[in-house]
Design a protein around this nucleic acid. Structure first.
Length: 236
DNA sequence: GCGACAG
DNA sequence: ATCTTGTCGC
């Protein structure tokens, strides 16, 4: 029997042989290019990225939104639909979602100064969650915003907005468990690329309004899961 | 060998 | 992630 392989998207996975073992190998290599230092221009535009599925999972639907960093007003949005090529494998999420995500990102009319990705940054077994992967291949500053933990442990988190606890894998700090809103499950925030561990949660908190998720990720989420309805705050 | 396991 | 209605709490 030969080793099972999947289609290789050259733009997203240069050097991948299409195998599961090869994917983990590539993650270890790319993780070395991640830079956890704040290195981004004054924030004008922030993008949000997320993926949803249609047709029982056979179609991957990636969404990208562009917001004004200050007013958080929606400036642009893109949606891209591609056939799904890989199953979900814990730890290898980017090999399933990255190609479509990058196309949605490139389709935006402007290049963002920072990108929020639904999923983990370095809070990953090999320090290359999808947010870190997006950062390394695009060169853009990124932050991962996840709704649950993939790896790591933490102390109890206060119940009010802004409360947090360090997420660690053994002795290594890999992210922040952040309460974005009173009495809601905390978010797991971790740097993707060109952002430090300390700054990531501050940037996320700045973009949270009245919901659990920060606006970039929340709007991308609605678009990817084709939901609509009310979006903003009460009219002034 | 036995669990855990982003979306 | 997705399949799905009503229901409890702020």
């Amino acid at each position: 029997m030969s080793v099972k392989t999947y289609p290789v998207d050259a733009a997203a996975f240069a050097g991948w042989d299409g195998s599961i073992a090869g994917a983990r190998r590539l993650q270890r290599e790319l993780a070395q290019r991640v830079r956890l230092v704040d290195d981004f221009a004054p924030l004008r535009r922030i993008a949000g990225l997320d993926v949803g599925f249609e047709d029982g999972g056979t179609v991957t639907r990636a969404a990208a939104v562009l917001l004004d960093a200050h007013s958080l007003a929606l400036q642009a949005e893109t949606v891209v639909r591609r056939p799904t090529t890989m199953p979900y494998v814990p730890g290898l999420l980017s090999f399933r979602e990255l190609p479509a995500l990058l196309e949605a990102l490139r389709a935006l009319p402007e290049v963002p100064d920072l990108v929020f990705v639904d999923g983990h940054g370095i809070a990953h077994p090999r320090r290359l969650g999808i947010a870190a992967h997006v950062g390394v291949v695009s060169g853009l500053p990124t932050i991962g915003v996840a709704k649950s933990i993939l790896v790591g442990t933490h102390a109890a988190v206060g119940e009010t907005r802004g409360a947090r606890a360090e997420l660690r894998d053994g002795e290594t700090p890999i992210g922040t468990v952040l309460r974005s809103k009173d009495r809601v499950a905390p978010l797991i925030v971790s740097p993707g690329h060109r952002v430090s561990l300390a700054t990531a949660p501050e940037l996320v908190l700045r973009t949270v309004t009245r919901y659990r998720l920060p606006e970039p990720t929340r709007l991308a989420d609605r678009l990817a899961s084709r939901r609509g309805g009310y979006t903003g705050a009460p009219r002034p």
